[in-house]
């Protein structure tokens, strides 16, 4: 189908976009890469009166590292993040996640900020933001504020961004020294929406015991799901197969995924447990205690 009619304004500066948002409010929608929005327009699931195109705001397209924190401008293309050595060196999980994200034809246009703001719990970047404890900077005409990943994802396709606000930047703090990272996903065909997935960060203490493990499950709940019970279970434990299996079981027991034509709830739960165990095992194999000199890989 074709989109319903709308007015179109191309913003030439972030402040102008905020000004337009403040005036048009609920009636308007920001257009960055459009790789989620345009299908919704074509299906007429979304019928905004005004589209504010922020896709050419070069000011918001950047990847840099400041004091260990990776800063990604909202209109940075997903393909740029995919190619970023800066990102893959410090956050290998991100590179793995992007590899699962749709197809090259989508990543060349789709933006990092667009995917995060779309807040789909079946999408890779929101899950990566959750497990890496990213902080999102949003702005309105009256100022800026920073939102933690936990507070940012409100429910299915809903973020904490208000109608007059715009996402400016995603800041990803440095992973703890020596922490193992993993991202695994399963879909029937590569690039389809995930049936399940898990992202894991395992930092170790000097004795090689888990200290501050983070687990986020994909497609498990209306938001990227931090499996806190499972995380706590691993605290102070050696990351052996038995402990990791118990944690994966605990993580899956916390969730009640919705059934649909692609998979029933119990199947998705079992899948979550398997994928969580895979991710934990992979991350544990990569993890080294912080005071040990790391040798190769």
């Amino acid at each position: 189908m074709k989109p319903a009619p709308f007015d179109y304004v191309r913003a030439t500066h972030p402040d102008q976009a905020l000004e337009l948002l403040a005036t048009a409010g609920d009636e308007s929608k920001l257009l960055a890469g459009g790789q989620s929005l345009i299908p919704m327009l074509n299906f007429r699931l979304a019928r905004p009166a005004v589209l504010i195109d922020i896709g050419r705001l070069g000011e918001l397209s950047y990847i840099n590292r400041q004091d260990g924190t990776l800063r990604i401008g909202a209109t940075t293309r997903q393909a740029q993040l995919e190619r970023s050595k800066l990102a893959s060196a410090g956050w290998p999980l991100l590179a793995r996640a992007i590899g699962w994200l749709a197809h090259p034809q989508i990543r060349s246009v789709g933006t990092v900020g667009g995917s995060v703001a779309h807040a789909d719990p079946a999408a890779e970047l929101p899950v990566a933001c959750s497990v890496l404890e990213a902080r999102m900077t949003v702005a309105s005409r009256s100022g800026k504020r920073e939102i933690s990943a936990d507070d940012f994802f409100v429910t299915h396709l809903t973020s904490a961004i208000e109608a007059d606000e715009m996402l400016l930047e995603i800041a990803i703090p440095a992973a703890p020294d020596g922490a193992g990272q993993s991202f695994v996903e399963y879909s029937r065909r590569h690039g389809d929406f995930a049936l399940g997935g898990a992202a894991v960060v395992i930092p170790l203490d000097a004795q090689g015991r888990c200290a501050g493990v983070r687990i986020t499950l994909m497609t498990a709940a209306p938001v990227p799901w931090r499996a806190r019970t499972a995380e706590k279970l691993l605290e102070g434990e050696l990351p052996g197969a038995q402990q990791l299996a118990a944690a994966a079981k605990a993580a899956a027991s916390e969730i009640s995924p919705t059934s649909d034509i692609h998979g029933g709830s119990s199947y998705r739960k079992a899948l979550a447990q398997t994928l969580c165990f895979q991710a934990l095992t992979e991350a544990a194999a990569m993890a080294t205690p912080p005071d040990v000199t790391r040798v190769g890989k």
Partner: peptide, 13 residues
Amino acid sequence: GAPVRSCLMLAIQ
């Protein structure tokens, strides 16, 4: 130079 889906882009973009 990059592959894109032309049905997921507005001409005006």
